[in-house]
Design a binder for these strands. Structure first.
Lengths: 242, 242
DNA sequence: GAGTACAGTTATGTATACAAGAAGGAATAC
DNA sequence: GTATTCCTTCTTGTATACATAACTGTACTC
């Protein structure tokens, strides 16, 4: 698409790292939030970010506005920016929206017998012998995200998939904390397997119930463990900085 | 060049309307799209908008990026901006998402007997004698939007309401075209009344079915009439410009 | 006459300059 | 010691300058 110039003196840098600065800074900041280098409640200024990333304020502002729209940060009128503080009600609402979207998706999958490709792909990952299961927390966490996203994608509704993906991104920060303990990973394999089998057998009601229970379990787990995990993360991040 | 606004002092206006320029330009551009002063497929540049609104490119770009994220416009790499062309599959997907969110909402309203205040307010509007009904297309169109939004808001899930509101905004351009004919208005009163009564009687299944049918009817109506309406709107807008 | 090369125009992306207001600290009055 | 006032500093919002690449039309070559 983008035509390559014959010689590449300056355009090499932009080609390497994501086409434009604003995009790169957006991704970097989001990663900083996900990995608790920027903590909920932390305040910072545009200049500060710009200097750290060695760019001007322009792309930084563009990235920040995008993060603001996605509810990761708030701008305080002429008084800097802030990583949005934890709000459990907010996350619980998001979990409920996920229940709505995903149960609607599996209902459609069962009733219309569609999404064969996506379901096959999921089988390869989740319906495997116990010995073949993965155990790395961050890997399983990513697979978990994909499991739920693909259920929605399988319906073929691109806009619903897009909205669900946005939800997933917004919840990642809190969902990661849920995957630090092996029992949680094991339970995930068990429950995803059950849901998947129900969908493959086109048992809509059962699939919906299993899925709803599964998500609401995560929801309650999260509320239990988050405060402690956040403090740990905060501490660890503090050490890394020093 | 853009230093001195022709119509009004820019500082006064910003104090009056919304504190900052980017917000104002965002609203103005969105309105231009809704009212077909900017037509799907139209191309324009940042400078062009900036000069017309008598501001610099900075707030214009901010507004455009927001509109881009909300799927109203596309940026063509170093080749200007474009009002997103009509895509019926896209709008159909949005209608389906609305079905999912709103049926889930009324289900919850019926099962948990919540949202009394919102339902009361809706009663005042939709369950009135035929003589008291409104007939102005744009008024009824706005009330129609609020009807569906309030069903979702009544569940108390702020994030679901926010997502639904975003959907409503994205669909407004096409939904307006649906309300130009009196029969459509009458049908809306009838169907909203039925849905509302079912919800008030906590008959969940019936309410869901009525709502689903109601939305899908709009969806099919829209696909039928849009092309013609769009041409009319394009013509009218051309006359206004000349 | 057709195709290609080249330069001028114009687009967005990025950096920088400037404006206005909020926050915080120091100094002063009591 | 306490409260208040002013001033410095730092913040975001906006305007402008500059960089780079794509498009377009023209002139030239074959």
């Amino acid at each position: 698409m983008a035509k390559r110039p014959v010689d590449e003196p300056v355009s090499r840098r932009s080609a390497e790292s994501g086409e434009n600065l604003a995009e790169r800074i957006y991704a970097q900041l989001k990663q900083d939030i996900f990995e608790f280098r920027l903590l909920p409640g932390d305040r910072f200024s545009e200049t500060e970010i710009a200097e750290r990333m060695a760019v001007s304020r322009t792309p930084v502002r563009e990235a920040l506005f995008r993060l603001q729209r996605e509810a990761f940060v708030d701008v305080l009128f002429r008084s800097g920016w802030q990583v949005r503080p934890f709000d459990f009600n907010y996350f619980e609402d998001l979990y409920d929206v996920r229940v709505v979207l995903e149960t609607a998706a599996v209902k459609r999958l069962c009733e219309q017998s569609i999404g064969g490709d996506e379901l096959d792909a999921l089988k390869q990952i989740w319906l495997v012998p116990a010995a073949d299961r993965l155990s790395d927390a961050s890997t399983v966490s990513a697979l978990d995200e994909r499991f739920h996203e693909m259920l929605v994608e399988a319906t073929g509704n691109a806009e619903m998939a897009r909205m669900h993906h946005a939800l997933t991104e917004r919840m990642r920060i809190i969902r990661r904390l849920d995957f630090t303990k092996p029992p949680r990973i094991e339970a995930t394999y068990l429950e995803h397997g059950k849901i998947l089998r129900a969908v493959l057998q086109r048992r809509g009601d059962q699939a919906q119930l299993l899925l709803k229970t599964h998500i609401e379990e995560s929801k309650s787990e999260v509320r239990k463990i988050t405060l402690h995990m956040l403090h740990t993360a905060r501490h660890k991040s503090g050490q890394e900085r020093a």
